[in-house]
Design a protein around this nucleic acid. Structure first.
Lengths: 198, 198
DNA sequence: GTCTATATCTAGATAGAC
DNA sequence: GTCTATCTAGATATAGAC
């Protein structure tokens, strides 16, 4: 076996993204992540007590990074509030196709029992960021805002799944760009119609 | 162990739906399906040569049944072409929440290599049914029609995933109805805006 | 801090009894 | 047509060497 890294903990999280992107949560295992880094299957357990804690750390990092890329994408989208919210969908498709860490990983994954304050905070920040964009885009009640957020995420996640499951073509770089663009267009249609009652 | 059924083959497919609905494709295994029926883990192999052939049969049945429920839902949706297409999303959420067999199972699952003419035909019929509804709803080019189909499926699948992953609440009967209604509303917004260029 | 080795578990799949 | 028994493979997790 190979041996030690400067920071195996960080490397394990990074390698988990790669594995998730290729094989999905289905194909994720601590052993496979270790293999990817050329370390023994026991090595990860020096840094994470069990599989769920590794996944929790991956989830935490994903919530932080996804939020950062969403902020970046909305900044690039200009001033129109509808365009800015729609950009969330594009950022989601791009990020999740690259890292494999979408809502399935960030939420669920049976991690609800894990107490991780940092992760909770990052997830909350991610949601707050999206809700704020929806508030700006939708003139409706709080309930309407939440519905708009859900719809935007549903669109983003739906296109990502279609892409991952080969509905479009193999997810090479170009297919990802196309899917992201479609997701943005579709999400954008939600906010135009939001002006009229949904 | 228990013993023989009238039709274990059919029972295995039915039990697979239940297992998929509860545990997802992630938690699916031939052994677990057998356990559900109280038969030995070897019994399924008398009816299916391997795991993929069972999943293929499940996929085939799902394509047939989902199409039937879509036809039923669109018939109930009235005459407006936009309403009829939007009804697809509602039928999808309801069906997939109950059976666990959505696009992830019907397509992907590494079943592309499986040659199953009946399954291919059912999948084709399912897609044709949706495309026809989109043609009626969208006055655009063939490309626009395909995009509308993709968007509708993305919305439907997105809401189903949100529901399954606990984004709304536990998927009891009521939560499913709410998610289905939201999916219909969101899908409906796509076709109103389709009148104006997307 | 990582390795080797190992115990335990679960799943996929096959052989042979009934 | 199903059962019991068994083999193989891969994953989680722990113990102890270096």
């Amino acid at each position: 076996m190979g041996y030690h890294h400067g920071d195996l903990r960080a490397a394990l999280i990074e390698a988990s993204f790669g594995l998730l992107a290729e094989s999905g949560l289905h194909g994720f295992s601590v052993a496979a992540v270790a293999r990817r880094l050329g370390v023994s299957s026991a090595a990860p357990y020096r840094h994470f007590p069990d599989r769920d804690h590794l996944l929790g750390a991956v989830s935490s990092a994903a919530a932080r990074d996804l939020r950062a890329e969403i902020v970046e994408a909305t900044d690039a989208a200009g001033d129109d509030a509808g365009d800015r919210l729609a950009a969330v969908a594009g950022a989601y498709v791009t990020f999740v196709t690259r890292t494999g860490a979408g809502i399935t990983v960030i939420f669920a994954a049976g991690l609800s029992e894990l107490v991780d304050e940092e992760r909770r905070e990052r997830t909350r920040a991610l949601m707050t960021t999206i809700v704020d964009l929806a508030v700006a885009a939708g003139p409706g009640s709080y309930q309407d805002v939440i519905r708009l957020v859900e719809a935007t995420i549903a669109v983003a996640h739906g296109y990502t799944s279609l892409l991952f499951d080969g509905f479009f073509a193999r997810p090479d770089g170009h297919a990802t760009d196309v899917a992201a663009a479609r997701a943005v267009e579709t999400a954008r249609a939600l906010t135009s119609s939001q002006a009229r009652p949904l």
